[in-house]
C-alpha cells in the first residue's frame, strides 16, 4: 500500500493541479505589481515598490509627492477597480452559465447592462453629476432584472427559457430607450458623454467609488463563491436538482440577485464591459475542469487578472485612452472563436 500512496502523490495529475494552483496564486500578484509600473508618468520600479511599502513601514521619502499621488490616487484605485470588476463579472458569468446550463451565457443575459446603461444615460442627460449617474445606473440595472424576473414568473416558478426570453425583451426595450436618449441628447457635449460612458472605462475611478461600489461586488461574489457547489447540482436541470433536495427557486433567486448586484455595481464603476463574463469561465474550465467548486474561485482570479491586463493596455497602448469595452470585445471575440473551435473540453451540446 505505501507504494500506492507515493504513486498518487507524484502522479501527473497532481503535479498538474499543483502547478495550476501556483500559477493562479502568483498571476494576480505579478500583474498587480506590474500595473503599478505602467503609465505615462515614468516612475522606476524600485521607487514604485518603495512608495507602496511606505504606507506599511516607514521609508524615507526620496521621491516627489506627485509620484506618490500618481501611485496612490490614480494607479492603485484604478487597478483595484479593474480587478474587482473583472472578478465580479467572471464569477457572475460562470454562475449564470451553470444556472442556464449553457456556456454561451454572459452576465448581461437578463438585461442588467441594458438597464444600467439606460439609467446612466438618463442621468447624464438630465442631471450630469457623477454620483447621481452611478446611482441611476445601479437602479436601472436592478429594475431591469426585476422586470425580467417578473415577466418570466409563471405561477410560482420562473422557467429558465422564460427568463432568457424575458431578458431579451428587457434588454431590447432598455436599449431602445437608451437610443432615444442618444437621439435627443445635445450632440456637442451630452451625446459624447453618453456614448463614452457606455463604452466603458476605468478612467474616472476614484477611491470613493471603491468604498461605495466595492462592497456590492465583494459581497455578491462572496455569496456566489459560497454556494458554488450547489450550482453543479442546479446545472443538471431543475427537475433533477429538485429530486436532490435543492430548492431551485431559492437558489436561482440567490444567483440572479448576486450576479445582478455585481454587474450593476460594475457598470456604475466602469460602464459596460462585455465579453469578460463570457470568456473567462471557459479559460477556467480548460485549467480546472467544469466542477464549479473549483471553477468559481478560479474564474474570480482569472477575471481579476485579465481585466487588469486589458486596462493596462487601455491606458498605455496609445497616447489617448482606449475605451476598455472596445478592447475586451476585440480581444475576447477572436479568443472565444479560437476556444470554441480548438477545445470542447469543459462543455458540450
Amino acid at each position: 500500500m505505501p507504494y500506492k500512496i507515493k504513486e498518487k502523490k507524484f502522479s501527473r495529475k497532481n503535479i498538474r493541479s499543483n502547478s495550476v494552483n501556483l500559477f493562479l496564486l502568483v498571476l494576480p500578484i505579478v500583474i498587480f505589481i506590474f500595473s503599478m509600473f505602467i503609465g505615462r508618468y515614468v516612475i522606476s520600479p524600485i521607487l514604485v515598490i518603495k512608495i507602496l511599502l511606505s504606507k506599511i513601514i516607514y521609508i524615507d521619502p526620496t521621491w516627489h509627492p506627485t509620484m506618490e499621488s500618481v501611485i496612490w490616487d490614480v494607479r492603485l484605485p484604478r487597478a483595484v477597480a479593474a480587478m474587482l470588476v473583472g472578478a465580479g463579472l467572471s464569477v457572475s458569468g460562470a454562475s449564470f452559465q451553470g444556472l442556464f446550463k449553457n456556456p454561451l451565457v454572459s452576465p448581461q443575459i437578463l438585461g442588467v447592462s441594458a438597464g444600467a446603461g439606460f439609467g446612466a444615460a438618463l442621468a447624464l442627460l438630465l442631471l450630469d453629476k457623477l454620483i447621481l449617474v452611478q446611482i441611476s445606473a445601479f437602479i436601472g440595472g436592478v429594475v431591469a432584472v426585476a422586470f425580467t424576473y417578473k415577466i418570466s414568473k409563471i405561477y410560482k416558478t420562473t422557467p429558465l427559457l422564460m427568463l432568457v426570453l424575458s431578458g431579451m425583451v428587457t434588454a431590447a426595450l432598455f436599449s431602445a430607450l437608451t437610443s432615444l436618449i442618444k437621439y435627443v441628447a445635445d450632440p456637442l457635449n451630452k451625446l459624447p458623454a453618453v456614448v463614452f460612458w457606455l463604452m466603458g472605462s476605468f478612467n474616472a475611478v476614484s477611491r470613493g467609488d471603491l468604498v461605495f461600489l466595492g462592497p456590492f461586488i465583494i459581497v455578491g461574489s462572496a455569496v456566489l463563491v459560497l454556494i458554488r457547489w450547489r450550482i453543479n447540482v442546479l446545472s443538471l436541470g431543475e427537475e433533477e436538482a429538485r429530486s436532490m433536495g435543492i430548492n431551485t427557486e431559492q437558489l436561482k433567486f440567490i444567483i440572479i440577485s448576486s450576479a445582478t448586484i455585481i454587474t450593476a455595481a460594475s457598470v456604475c464603476m466602469s460602464g459596460i464591459i462585455g465579453w469578460v463574463g463570457l470568456v473567462i469561465p471557459h479559460v477556467g474550465r480548460i485549467l480546472v475542469g467544469p466542477d464549479h467548486k473549483k471553477l468559481i474561485p478560479v474564474s474570480l482570479i482569472l477575471g481579476a487578472s485579465y481585466l487588469l491586463i486589458v486596462d493596462d493596455i487601455a491606458r498605455s497602448a496609445i497616447s489617448t485612452e482606449i475605451p476598455i469595452g472596445i478592447l475586451t470585445a476585440i480581444i475576447g471575440a477572436p479568443f472565444f472563436a479560437y476556444l470554441i473551435r480548438k477545445s470542447k473540453s469543459g462543455w458540450n451540446y
Partner: peptide, 8 residues
C-alpha cells in the same frame, strides 16, 4: 440524463 458540462 443530460449534462451540459462534462463533470467527472
Amino acid at each position: 440524463h443530460f449534462s451540459a458540462f462534462p463533470y467527472s
